[in-house]
Protein backbone atom coordinates (compact mmCIF):
# COMPACT_ATOMS: atom_id res chain seq x y z
CA UNK A 1 0.00 0.00 0.00
CA UNK A 2 2.63 2.41 1.10
CA UNK A 3 4.59 1.45 -1.93
CA UNK A 4 1.80 2.27 -4.39
CA UNK A 5 1.19 5.60 -2.67
CA UNK A 6 4.81 6.41 -3.07
CA UNK A 7 4.68 5.43 -6.74
CA UNK A 8 1.62 7.58 -7.41
CA UNK A 9 3.20 10.41 -5.52
CA UNK A 10 6.37 10.19 -7.54
CA UNK A 11 4.48 10.03 -10.82
CA UNK A 12 2.42 13.05 -9.86
CA UNK A 13 5.53 14.93 -8.88
CA UNK A 14 7.09 14.04 -12.18
CA UNK A 15 4.05 15.28 -14.08
CA UNK A 16 4.01 18.57 -12.23
CA UNK A 17 7.68 19.04 -12.92
CA UNK A 18 7.22 18.28 -16.62
CA UNK A 19 4.32 20.70 -16.79
CA UNK A 20 6.32 23.37 -15.08
CA UNK A 21 9.16 22.83 -17.52
CA UNK A 22 6.80 23.13 -20.49
CA UNK A 23 5.23 26.26 -19.12
CA UNK A 24 8.64 27.72 -18.46
CA UNK A 25 9.78 26.82 -21.94
CA UNK A 26 6.69 28.49 -23.41
CA UNK A 27 7.45 31.53 -21.41
CA UNK A 28 11.08 31.49 -22.40
CA UNK A 29 10.23 31.31 -26.09
CA UNK A 30 9.14 34.90 -26.12
CA UNK A 31 12.58 36.35 -25.96
CA UNK A 32 11.89 39.68 -27.59
CA UNK A 33 12.09 42.03 -24.67
CA UNK A 34 9.16 44.32 -24.04
CA UNK A 35 10.00 47.92 -24.62
CA UNK A 36 12.61 47.26 -27.28
CA UNK A 37 12.09 48.54 -30.79
CA UNK A 38 11.79 44.96 -32.00
CA UNK A 39 8.72 44.39 -29.80
CA UNK A 40 6.78 46.82 -31.95
CA UNK A 41 7.63 45.08 -35.22
CA UNK A 42 5.90 42.20 -36.95
CA UNK A 43 9.11 40.35 -37.67
CA UNK A 44 12.83 40.80 -37.94
CA UNK A 45 14.62 41.46 -41.25
CA UNK A 46 13.53 37.95 -42.25
CA UNK A 47 10.55 35.85 -41.09
CA UNK A 48 10.92 34.88 -37.43
CA UNK A 49 11.25 31.17 -38.11
CA UNK A 50 14.12 31.81 -40.54
CA UNK A 51 15.82 34.21 -38.16
CA UNK A 52 15.68 31.70 -35.33
CA UNK A 53 17.47 29.08 -37.34
CA UNK A 54 19.69 31.09 -39.63
CA UNK A 55 20.64 34.32 -37.89
CA UNK A 56 24.22 33.20 -37.26
CA UNK A 57 24.66 32.38 -40.93
CA UNK A 58 23.31 35.78 -41.92
CA UNK A 59 25.59 37.55 -39.49
CA UNK A 60 28.59 35.52 -40.54
CA UNK A 61 28.00 36.26 -44.20
CA UNK A 62 27.61 39.94 -43.43
CA UNK A 63 30.75 40.03 -41.33
CA UNK A 64 32.89 38.87 -44.23
CA UNK A 65 31.37 41.47 -46.52
CA UNK A 66 31.84 44.20 -43.96
CA UNK A 67 35.31 43.41 -42.68
CA UNK A 68 36.91 42.42 -45.97
CA UNK A 69 34.98 44.48 -48.49
CA UNK A 70 33.82 47.42 -46.44
CA UNK A 71 30.14 46.95 -47.28
CA UNK A 72 28.05 48.56 -44.56
CA UNK A 73 24.51 48.54 -45.90
CA UNK A 74 23.61 44.88 -45.56
CA UNK A 75 20.60 44.28 -43.43
CA UNK A 76 22.10 41.57 -41.25
CA UNK A 77 24.33 43.73 -39.14
CA UNK A 78 25.12 42.87 -35.56
CA UNK A 79 24.90 46.48 -34.50
CA UNK A 80 21.46 46.41 -36.10
CA UNK A 81 20.49 43.51 -33.81
CA UNK A 82 21.70 45.45 -30.80
CA UNK A 83 20.03 48.70 -31.83
CA UNK A 84 16.65 47.08 -32.34
CA UNK A 85 16.59 44.55 -29.52
CA UNK A 86 18.10 46.64 -26.77
CA UNK A 87 15.90 47.45 -23.81
CA UNK A 88 16.21 50.00 -21.06
CA UNK A 89 15.68 49.72 -17.36
CA UNK A 90 13.70 52.18 -15.23
CA UNK A 91 16.65 54.58 -15.15
CA UNK A 92 16.77 54.52 -18.96
CA UNK A 93 20.06 52.62 -18.93
CA UNK A 94 20.40 50.17 -21.82
CA UNK A 95 20.78 46.56 -20.70
CA UNK A 96 23.62 44.62 -22.34
CA UNK A 97 21.97 42.39 -24.89
CA UNK A 98 23.95 39.31 -23.85
CA UNK A 99 22.73 39.59 -20.26
CA UNK A 100 20.83 36.47 -19.14
CA UNK A 101 17.45 38.22 -19.17
CA UNK A 102 17.95 40.01 -22.46
CA UNK A 103 17.24 39.04 -26.06
CA UNK A 104 20.47 37.33 -27.09
CA UNK A 105 21.55 36.19 -23.64
CA UNK A 106 18.27 34.54 -22.64
CA UNK A 107 17.86 32.46 -25.77
CA UNK A 108 21.50 31.43 -25.91
CA UNK A 109 21.32 30.41 -22.27
CA UNK A 110 18.18 28.36 -22.95
CA UNK A 111 19.68 26.72 -26.03
CA UNK A 112 23.00 26.28 -24.25
CA UNK A 113 24.92 27.82 -27.11
CA UNK A 114 28.03 29.79 -26.30
CA UNK A 115 27.66 33.43 -27.27
CA UNK A 116 30.94 35.21 -27.77
CA UNK A 117 30.06 38.00 -30.21
CA UNK A 118 30.07 40.40 -27.32
CA UNK A 119 33.58 39.56 -26.17
CA UNK A 120 34.52 42.17 -28.73
CA UNK A 121 31.33 43.78 -30.01
CA UNK A 122 29.50 46.41 -28.01
CA UNK A 123 26.51 44.87 -26.21
CA UNK A 124 24.79 48.25 -25.96
CA UNK A 125 24.68 51.02 -28.56
CA UNK A 126 27.85 52.89 -27.77
CA UNK A 127 29.50 55.85 -29.43
CA UNK A 128 28.90 56.85 -33.00
CA UNK A 129 26.33 54.47 -34.49
CA UNK A 130 27.18 52.66 -37.68
CA UNK A 131 24.31 54.07 -39.62
CA UNK A 132 24.81 56.77 -42.16
CA UNK A 133 21.82 58.94 -41.45
CA UNK A 134 22.26 58.66 -37.75
CA UNK A 135 25.94 59.35 -38.05
CA UNK A 136 25.33 62.50 -40.02
CA UNK A 137 22.79 63.63 -37.48
CA UNK A 138 25.26 62.85 -34.77
CA UNK A 139 27.96 64.88 -36.32
CA UNK A 140 25.55 67.70 -36.89
CA UNK A 141 24.74 67.95 -33.24
CA UNK A 142 28.07 66.96 -31.83
CA UNK A 143 26.48 64.16 -29.84
CA UNK A 144 29.29 61.81 -30.61
CA UNK A 145 31.73 64.16 -29.00
CA UNK A 146 29.58 64.42 -25.91
CA UNK A 147 29.23 60.70 -25.56
CA UNK A 148 32.94 60.22 -25.89
CA UNK A 149 33.75 62.98 -23.46
CA UNK A 150 31.50 61.63 -20.79
CA UNK A 151 33.05 58.22 -21.12
CA UNK A 152 36.54 58.95 -20.09
CA UNK A 153 35.49 61.87 -17.99
CA UNK A 154 37.98 64.26 -19.52
CA UNK A 155 36.13 65.97 -22.31
CA UNK A 156 38.41 66.66 -25.20
Amino acid sequence: MAKSVLTVGLVALGLVWALAQTAQADDMKRYVVAGSQAAKLESCVEPTELMRRQHMEFIKHQRIATVHEGIRIEKYSLSGCVDCHISYNAEQIPQPINQADQFCGACHAFAAVNLNCFDCHAAVPNGTPLNAAAMAAHDAAGVAAQVQSSRDGKGH
Binding site: Y88, E91, Q92, I93, P94, V124, P125, N126, P129, A134, A137, H138, A141, V143, Q146, V147, S150, R151
Partner: peptide, 12 residues
Protein backbone atom coordinates in the same frame (compact mmCIF):
# COMPACT_ATOMS: atom_id res chain seq x y z
CA UNK B 1 27.86 56.83 -20.42
CA UNK B 2 25.05 54.41 -21.15
CA UNK B 3 22.54 56.68 -19.52
CA UNK B 4 23.02 59.11 -22.35
CA UNK B 5 22.04 56.68 -25.03
CA UNK B 6 18.25 56.84 -24.79
CA UNK B 7 18.27 60.58 -25.23
CA UNK B 8 20.63 60.25 -28.09
CA UNK B 9 18.51 57.62 -29.70
CA UNK B 10 15.38 59.70 -29.35
CA UNK B 11 17.21 62.58 -30.89
CA UNK B 12 18.41 60.50 -33.80
Amino acid sequence: NDAINPQRRAFL
